[in-house]
Amino acid sequence: MIAVIGAAGTIGSKVLEFLEAWDAAAAPRDFRLQGDEHVDARDPASLARALAGASVCVNCADYRLNLEVMEGALRAGCHYIDLGGLFHMTRRQLGLHDRFLEDGRTAILGMGSAPGKTNLLASAAIRRLGAAPSSLEIWAATRDPAAAGHPLPITYSAQTLLDELRMRPVVLHEGELVEVEPLSGAAKRELPELDEVEAIYTLHSELATLPAAFPSLREASFRLSLSPGLIDKLLALGDELPEPYVQSA
C-alpha cells in the first residue's frame, strides 16, 4: 500500500489520481480528511496510524513537515519520497541517509517538478555534454493557458512560493555555496515556446544536491520566471493565502 500524505492538497490530489489510474493500492492521508484518512503529520502517533501497513510513503505535505514525515516513515518501516524541501530542509533531510540505509529503506528527496524534473534534465544534459561540467543554470518557467486571466496564476502552495521569494537564495559561485539577496539575479533569456522571459534567483533544493553530484561545477544557480506582475501581487498578500488554480492537463 502507498500512503499519500497531503492527499487533499493541490499536488497530493494529482499524485493520488495518477496512482489510482495505475491501479496502485493508494491510501489518501490528510489533515483535512476524516476517520482513518485523517493525519496530523506533527503527531508521531497520528503518523504511525496513517502509515500502518504502508510499503511506501509519498509525502505531498508542506515541506516544513518533511523531517517529521521522514521520521514517521522510518518508524513504520516504509520507503519514502517527497516533492522538495527548499534547500535548507533538504540538507537537514540528507542527515537521515545513514538511518534509512541501516534499515534497508529508500528515501528519494525532491521528486516533484522542480526539484525533480529539473534535476533529471540537468543530469541528462551533463551526460550529453560528455565532459565534466563547470557551470550550470536552471531556469524554471511556464505559461499555462488555463491561467489566462487568473488574478494569481500560482501552480502550488502560495506559502511555499512566498518562502522562495522572501528567503535568501543560494547559488554556487567559484565552487562555494553562497547566499545572495532575495529577488536578485534578474536576467532575460529566450526559451522555446515562451519567447523571452525574465527570471530571478530563488531558494531551491537543486543547489543542495547537484553540486555534490557533479563536483566539477564552479558556478550553478536556479532562476524562477513567473507571470508578469505576479511577484508584486504575491508579496502584497496578507494572511489569507489563495489556493492554486486548476492547471490544464
Rank of each mutant, 00 (worst) to 15 (best):
A199T: 04
T90R: 13
A7R: 05
A52V: 10
G6P: 15
V246T: 13
D163C: 05
I200A: 00
E179V: 08
V178R: 15
N119R: 13
P153S: 03
I138D: 04
T118H: 04
H173T: 15
L226R: 02
P215S: 08
I2N: 07
E20P: 11
L194Y: 02
I138R: 03
L210K: 09
P153V: 03
P192R: 00
E181H: 01
P228R: 03
A21G: 15
S135A: 15
G12H: 12
L234M: 05
A146E: 00
A48H: 10
G110Y: 13
E206L: 05
I154K: 03
L109T: 10
P44T: 10
K188C: 08
L161T: 14
R64D: 08
L235A: 03
T106Y: 13
A141G: 05
L226I: 04
L67K: 12
L191I: 00
H150T: 02
P115N: 06
I11R: 08
E240D: 15
M89S: 11
L74Y: 12
V69H: 11
L183R: 07
L109Q: 14
L67R: 15
L94Q: 15
T118S: 11
V197G: 04
H150L: 03
P115M: 06
L65I: 09
N66Q: 13
D232E: 02
L194M: 04
D30T: 11
G229S: 04
R166A: 02
A220R: 11
R92E: 15
E71D: 11
F31N: 12
I2H: 10
A208D: 09
S123T: 14
L226E: 02
S184C: 07
A41P: 15
W139P: 11
A187G: 13
L101D: 14
